[in-house]
Amino acid sequence: KFGRVHERAEGPAKILAIGTATPFHWVDQSSYPDYYFRVTNSDHLVDLKEKFRRICNRTMISKRHMFLTEEILQKNPNLCSHNEPSFDVRQDILVSEIPKLGKEAVLMAIDEWAQPKSKITHLVFCTRSGVDMPGADYQLIKLLGLSPSVQRVMMYQQGCFAGGTMLRLAKDLAENNKGARVLVVCAESSAIGFRGPSEDHPDNLIAQALFGDGAAALIIGSDPKMGLERPIFEIVTTAQTFVPNGDCHLALHLREMGLTFHCTKDVPPTIAKNVESCLIKAFEPLGISDWNSIFWILHPGGNAIVDQVESTLGLEPNKLQATRNILREYGNLSSACVLFILDEIRKKSGREGLKTSGDGLDLGVLLSFGPGLTIETVVLR
């Protein structure tokens, strides 16, 4: 008597548009150690500064975009301390800036989509910054002038794996609601975790050397309108798992001094060791076991992770080039990073006149991972 209210779509979910945005301000990685130790009044920690310089040199990052300028840091000195309470200051900045950054990426996506924004039916927003109620999803709806009846899902504090999570959720929403057009937004800022150095917490140096700011937005829907919408990728399958006891290797915690970062040297080999089982589960039903026969979007948690995944799986050097390019130009953008790589690989395919948006290949994989050593596996066509 009370059956399904919403009719299912006929076809699989497809990515119809991609937009990205970054803050205008950026830092050069080669000179960042001098800048970082100067603005945090830590130049007296000579040995720690040299250690940080070595870490920065190993990241293979060229530059990173950041909202925090020297002027902002001078006005808010607690942000430059390692342990002073600064959460309220971070909140005041990020509750406002995260939706604005997301808006810039959304406008780029809508411009490519070339359809009225009134056709957006759902919003899925993800960030690890600016936790608030009502959330960044609500603020973004107002900034864009979208209908208050847009169906919203707000996900805070997920971390680097969440780019894949957003695709998984959007696929379910698009395929189970005929005519749905799902706006996916990942907006991230390193301002939540920026803090001064400490000899007692070397993990913090890794975070300060890796993370950048950026937002990515996608429009996802099934059954694209012929002649009006141009699909870029099809989302074939999605899956999530985590490595048992992985939280002892990688975890982040909200504290009075901001978001703290805990990471062990076992993260790269542990991820590399567990990736292939995810690939087998995803691609065995499709008859694929040659990992060089697919295109790759791999989250660059750090250069060591990229190198070890490449080595463990025997990947050809060009397979992870898009990942390395984004890491070099932006650093680790947390949940937004794989979506930047997705954009990079389709643009490169277009520039080179390849037959598909995925490096000329039919199928590919998007792998994202993060806290708890959670792994998201997304098969794309």
Score class of each variant (00 low, 15 high):
D137V: 10
M108V: 05
D266S: 06
G135R: 06
N41T: 12
T238R: 06
R53F: 08
L73E: 07
A13S: 06
G301V: 14
K355N: 13
E284Q: 07
I326L: 00
R255W: 07
S81V: 11
T312A: 06
H299P: 14
N274T: 13
V365I: 07
P77T: 04
G302V: 08
M66Q: 11
L367R: 15
L339R: 10
W296C: 11
L279K: 05
L354G: 03
I93R: 12
A272M: 10
E376A: 00
G358M: 08
G364L: 01
E112H: 00
L380E: 15
P317V: 08
V89W: 06
R58K: 12
L252C: 01
T69C: 01
V338S: 14
V379L: 11
N292G: 09
Y330K: 15
L315Y: 00
D34T: 10
Q29M: 03
N292V: 03
E70S: 06
A282L: 14
K14H: 15
K100H: 06
F52C: 06
S289H: 11
K265A: 12
I110S: 02
T238D: 07
P85Q: 15
W26V: 08
T356G: 05
T374H: 12
M257G: 14
L73V: 08
L298H: 05
A282T: 05
L339C: 05
I271N: 03
N41Q: 13
C56R: 10
D343W: 01
I98A: 07
S81I: 04
I280C: 15
N318D: 07
P244V: 02
L101Q: 06
E256I: 07
H44F: 01
P244G: 11
A304M: 00
K14P: 07
G145R: 02
Y36S: 06
E344W: 10
K273R: 09
T237R: 10
I235D: 04
I15C: 11
Q139T: 04
T312K: 06
P33S: 13
K142R: 12
R8Q: 06
I110C: 05
T20L: 03
L333A: 03
V306L: 14
H262A: 12
S311E: 13
F52L: 08
D343P: 00
Y32E: 09
T40R: 09
G302D: 11
L366E: 02
T377H: 13
T264K: 02
R54C: 07
S335Q: 00
L45Q: 03
V27I: 10
L259T: 02
G314E: 05
S62I: 07
T59W: 00
R8F: 00
S86M: 13
Y36V: 01
V106I: 03
I375L: 09
I294H: 03
D359R: 03
C337Y: 05
H249P: 11
S311P: 00
A21P: 08
L48F: 08
D343R: 02
V365Y: 14
L144W: 06
K142D: 04
L333K: 03
E234R: 04
S335L: 01
P317D: 00
V39A: 11
W296M: 02
F242S: 15
C126W: 13
V5Q: 03
R255G: 11
P317E: 07
C248D: 14
I288C: 11
I288W: 03
F37H: 15
Y138V: 15
G302R: 00
T312V: 11
L79M: 04
Q308R: 03
F295Q: 02
Q29A: 04
P285S: 08
K142Q: 12
G102W: 08
D111G: 08
G331N: 01
F233T: 15
M108L: 07
G246Y: 01
D111T: 09
P285H: 06
T69I: 06
D307A: 03
L315R: 05
A322F: 09
P134C: 01
A17Y: 10
N292H: 02
L16Y: 01
I141V: 05
C337D: 05
L228V: 15
R381D: 12
L48I: 08
D43E: 14
D34N: 06
L361R: 11
T237V: 04
F37R: 13
A304I: 09
E310G: 06
R324N: 10
S368Y: 12
T121R: 01
G301I: 05
F261G: 15
F125Y: 09
F261C: 01
V236T: 02
V267H: 09
N303H: 07
L354S: 04
E352F: 15
A21E: 05
D92N: 14
G314D: 09
R381H: 06
Q91R: 14
L16H: 03
K14S: 12
N318F: 13
S334E: 14
S368P: 08
Q29H: 07
T264Q: 06
K265F: 07
I305L: 10
R54W: 01
T312G: 12
T356K: 13
N274Y: 12
S334F: 01
F340H: 00
V27F: 08
T22D: 05
F125D: 03
E50D: 14
N318R: 02
N57K: 12
P148S: 07
L144F: 08
E352G: 07
V39G: 12
E344P: 02
R351T: 08
V46G: 06
E310R: 04
L107C: 13
F52I: 07
E329S: 03
L361C: 13
K103E: 11
A272L: 13
N325V: 08
T20C: 12
Q139G: 09
L250S: 15
T22P: 09
G258Q: 00
E70F: 00
E344Q: 02
E310S: 01
K319E: 10
L327H: 07
E97C: 06
P300C: 14
R90K: 14
H82Y: 11
H299A: 13
T69S: 12
G372A: 10
G246C: 14
D111Y: 05
P85W: 08
H249T: 14
S30A: 15
N41H: 09
V309G: 05
F24Y: 12
N303A: 14
L123C: 05
L298P: 07
R346A: 07
S334Y: 09
L254E: 13
V379C: 12
A136W: 14
E229S: 00
H25R: 12
M108A: 13
F261E: 15
N83H: 11
P300W: 02
C337S: 15
A336Y: 11
A304F: 00
N83I: 12
R328W: 05
A322V: 09
D111E: 13
D92G: 07
L259D: 13
P285A: 01
T127G: 07
S293F: 01
S335T: 12
P371V: 04
V365E: 15
P269L: 11
K103M: 11
C337A: 14
H44C: 00
S289D: 13
C248A: 11
V236P: 09
I305R: 06
I305H: 00
T312L: 14
I93T: 08
S277V: 12
K51C: 07
C263K: 13
V275R: 01
L354F: 05
M133T: 11
N274V: 14
N332S: 14
R8N: 00
H122P: 06
F2L: 05
G246V: 02
E344I: 00
S118A: 02
L367M: 13
L366D: 14
V379F: 13
V106P: 01
D362L: 00
I61D: 10
I232G: 08
G11R: 04
